[in-house]
Design a protein around this nucleic acid. Structure first.
Lengths: 343, 343
DNA sequence: GTTAGCACTCAACTCATGCGAGTGCTAACG
DNA sequence: CGTTAGCACTCGCATGAGTTGAGTGCTAAC
């Protein structure tokens, strides 16, 4: 519904504002080579664009800045993604191809690369449990009352959880249980563990193990995949402090506080992970007030062709969308490739 | 070397400044009940204290603020530690007595309590390896090339490390090695593992295991206690942003950047862990420039009577020393008590 | 030794002023 | 009719002068 000229001008304004963080005036647009009109003409168009809701004016006699709607249009229709140099792609690849031999290492490393290349904050979610299965289970007694339950997944992740041993349970009971679980549950996807516990293991345990009830309860708690915490990796949080729009310490504090709340982050990130591909949530499209002036761009990485984790970049709404989207795309694809080695 | 009256006045100034963060004038000191002198007298003493280096003046016609030397004297001679209410002690105890069944949980929890009660940033170091011994060792192959090495310590900590399996090594080789290690090394302190590997295990392996050389190399890397990273737990980093002296975003960025550098933190914290008891490092006594306006107060917690870890509070030099020292003392002692359950 | 009094200092606040970047509108131009 | 030059107008911001007030240092008196 915008004319070609309006699109050109909107594009120029967004580009300029992303670079300078200052309201953009008609003169400076006119002086750019790519729009061959006088300031007056551009002023007319800018007035129209403001009326349509794509631009805002901080005050009369200041230039225009893009509104959220303006950014949205820019991202959806105008942004050109070829802005990233081949040499930079090479850098990313070389950083991620380094020999990294655990999933967590890969993810953490990807986060560092992301935040360093963009100068924004990166938020990465570890892989979800859907595609990983049990590789090994172990219950190691530490003393009479306490033990560590260890779960090793097919991707080489090790999770451990301290548990209390119910009174009266003997070492040999524990051993029996561990053997039963390993013989029956290895190879089972993690999220199915708990239901299998009841459908297959319970009977067997009832036959062979004393204190059946208590042990079952213990295992139930141990295998609970809800509690199995999806890890959140942050990198470059202090980059927020360098953005001119966050020179106000109170705003930045709200953002940093939000970043420390793992559950909130998890929710925020997984909201956007449902549909695949790259997602851009601009300003108030994010539900949290603290980041009303931020944009969150997310992508997913996959394992075996299925999206299992989310990586994202948080920055000001005035964000280098083209660059960030490109980098996010490259990194997510590279991660998928590298992680496939671990299956 | 200070007269009693000078000490009184210095004490009053430091107390006032800690509360208000504003330079303290002679009049306000005089009006406090505890110093029965007129502003003029106090001004004279203040001039002397400044000459002696205990006070500073931001500019003529402003009040005085304590110098680093002034804080130092305050901490060493003046601070009264009974400032903490019994009810608060009860709060701490109840928070730390909650059933926590892993060392890491205890430490993390203690950090949260510390930062919340003080409104500063807490930095806690996990226990050093000296006092913990091997509980169990395991090598779990994931596929032909890769495996996870799992080390469980006597305190219930689980560490894991991905390793590559040398070409040609068979599953049964791995099993043999694991058995040898478990039979010979369980109960050995972690820091001795590596030397024992060569003194006791090497021979045995040479007899029974093929690909002896490669396996030894693999184990050497796995058991390396240097690489075993001592974990750093941070809590309340954003509390820094609420301090009026750090309203300047650049200063605070340097501090937050420092807090993200785990190795630097480790070094910083362990410097002070050598001598036991509570240590206060004021301003430039800290070697890092970023925290030249901060004070770091540290204490150690112990296991079996021996200091194994450090807990600390980082805040502005204008810190509530009395309160922080008291709280740190209580929490470190409580941690020692609780952690003793895990040995 | 202590204190009242007073002149002095200096950051911080307020207010008027001018500047300049930028706009909106109108009229003229091709 | 779309485009543009010209001009009056707006308003944030920087500058500088004037004022205030908290606080000092010094001197002289108690």
């Amino acid at each position: 519904m915008l004319t070609e000229r309006q699109r050109m001008i909107l594009n120029a304004i967004v580009d300029d504002y992303i670079r300078s963080a200052e309201p953009v005036g008609s003169r400076s647009i006119s002086k750019r080579g790519d729009v061959g009109y006088s300031p007056a003409t551009i002023r007319n168009e800018m007035a129209d664009l403001e009326e349509l809701g794509f631009l805002e004016q901080p005050h009369t006699s200041a230039g225009r800045i893009p509104s959220h709607k303006g950014y949205r249009y820019y991202v959806d229709h105008l942004v050109s993604l070829n802005s990233i140099k081949p040499s930079e792609i090479q850098v990313i690849k070389s950083f991620l191809t380094e020999k990294l031999n655990a999933m967590e290492q890969v993810i953490q490393h990807a986060g560092t690369v992301l935040s360093q290349m963009t100068s924004y904050t990166s938020i990465l979610l570890g892989p979800e449990v859907f595609n990983t299965s049990l590789r090994h289970f172990q219950l190691l007694p530490l003393n009479e009352n306490r033990a560590v339950a260890i779960i090793v997944t097919s991707t080489g992740q090790v999770e451990n959880k301290p548990v209390s041993i119910p009174a009266g349970v003997s070492m040999s009971d524990l051993e029996k249980v561990v053997n039963i679980l390993n013989s029956k549950l290895v190879g089972v996807p993690l999220y199915k563990l708990k239901s299998r516990l009841y459908s297959e293991i319970a009977q067997e345990m009832q036959k062979n193990v004393s204190h059946y009830e208590e042990m079952l309860q213990l295992l139930d708690a141990t295998l609970d995949s809800e509690q199995r915490d999806q890890k959140v990796f942050l990198s470059g949080t202090t980059n927020m402090l360098t953005q001119p729009e966050f020179k106000d310490i109170d705003k930045v504090k709200d953002i940093l506080d939000l970043l420390e709340e793992t559950p909130t982050l998890l929710k925020m990130m997984s909201e956007s992970s449902k549909s695949s591909g790259i997602q851009v949530r601009i300003g108030t499209e994010n539900t949290h007030e603290a980041i009303a002036n931020c944009s969150l761009i997310t992508a997913t990485y996959s394992l075996d062709g299925e999206a299992v984790g989310t990586i994202g970049i948080l920055g000001p709404t005035r964000m280098e969308y083209a660059r960030v989207i490109s980098i996010l795309d490259i990194i997510s694809k590279n991660m998928s490739t590298i992680l496939s080695r671990f299956v």
